[in-house]
């Protein structure tokens, strides 16, 4: 917890997924950084515990090693493997099982992409893959649309957390439909983590103000001019948004209400 939130009244309920208490509501990806060193410093500045990774073929024709694990202290981070790049349920299940065989944990950030231009999820295939993986003992965190009905179906299918998008992956457009995000959070019992689309700190803050349990982001950090500074900003923004949500915002009014007394004015 950052110093700015260590004040009286700033207590929060623990952030728990599938029985595991997580120390940060901000989760971050490890893709698209200019260098491993920049990635490590940005993740450190973000305060994240959960970091996502992708499964890919080892490049056998090159001396350079693109593996990410040598850069991540295993005791410090909780690895969350994704199924990014999978366009059907069978592929996503295959990638999830390969990731599990690495031996770290049984969690998966399940993505089944339906369209190359928008990278929006194929929610029908996502449900199929969720059911298969839950039956196989996985803790499934399902990346999905900001659609309540799909979110409810994913919860019914046994997803440990539902991850609606703020806006398309890598778009940085921020939260396009706060109402949907809020509604999903209201209706689900499992944690709701907004995944994808956050572009800058205000986006993260507004997202957390909707009451969701956490945010996962990658490009907003990796593609910032200064990823380490942006990671620090996001950490503060997630905390700020969370605290504002817990504090309960004042009602919106269409007319002004004076803040200073209207009595005691000079004659």
């Amino acid at each position: 917890m950052t110093e700015s939130t260590m004040i009286a009244g700033a207590t929060d309920t623990p952030f728990v997924i599938a029985g595991r208490t997580l120390r940060s509501r901000l989760m971050v990806g490890t893709g698209k950084y200019k260098s491993p060193d920049e990635m490590v410093r940005a993740i450190d500045a973000s305060g994240a515990e959960v970091v996502t990774v992708a499964v890919r073929r080892v490049n056998l024709n090159r001396d350079t090693d693109d593996g990410v694990l040598p850069h991540l202290a295993p005791a410090r981070y909780f690895l969350l493997s994704n199924t990014a790049g999978c366009y059907n349920a069978a592929d996503a299940v295959r990638y999830a099982r390969l990731a599990r065989a690495a031996g770290f944990n049984e969690w998966v950030k399940l993505e089944v992409i339906g369209d190359q231009d928008t990278l929006l999820p194929d929610t029908a295939a996502l449900l199929v893959a969720t059911k298969t993986l839950v039956a196989d003992g996985f803790v499934v965190l399902a990346y999905t649309n900001d659609d309540l009905i799909t979110a409810l179906r994913l919860e019914d299918a046994g997803a440990a957390a539902v991850m609606p998008l703020a806006s398309p992956i890598g778009s940085g457009l921020g939260v396009l439909n706060p109402y949907s995000i809020r509604t999903i959070k209201h209706r689900l019992s499992v944690p709701v983590i907004v995944d994808a689309g956050v572009g800058t700190a205000s986006d993260a803050c507004i997202t957390m103000e909707q009451g969701v349990d956490g945010i996962l982001m990658n490009t907003a950090l990796a593609a910032a001019d200064d990823p380490v500074r942006m990671a620090h900003a996001m950490r503060l923004a997630v905390d700020a948004g969370r605290q504002a949500h817990l504090a309960g915002r004042m009602p919106r009014r269409e007319v002004a209400v004076p803040s200073s007394p209207s009595v005691g004015m000079l004659e």
């Binding site: 893709g31 698209k32 990774v53 890919r56 690895l79 994704n82 990014a84 390969l98």
Partner: peptide
């Protein structure tokens, strides 16, 4: 034979 590992991803 597929040989895979973890790379950076979101």
């Amino acid at each position: 034979v597929e040989i895979v590992h973890f790379v950076g991803g979101g």
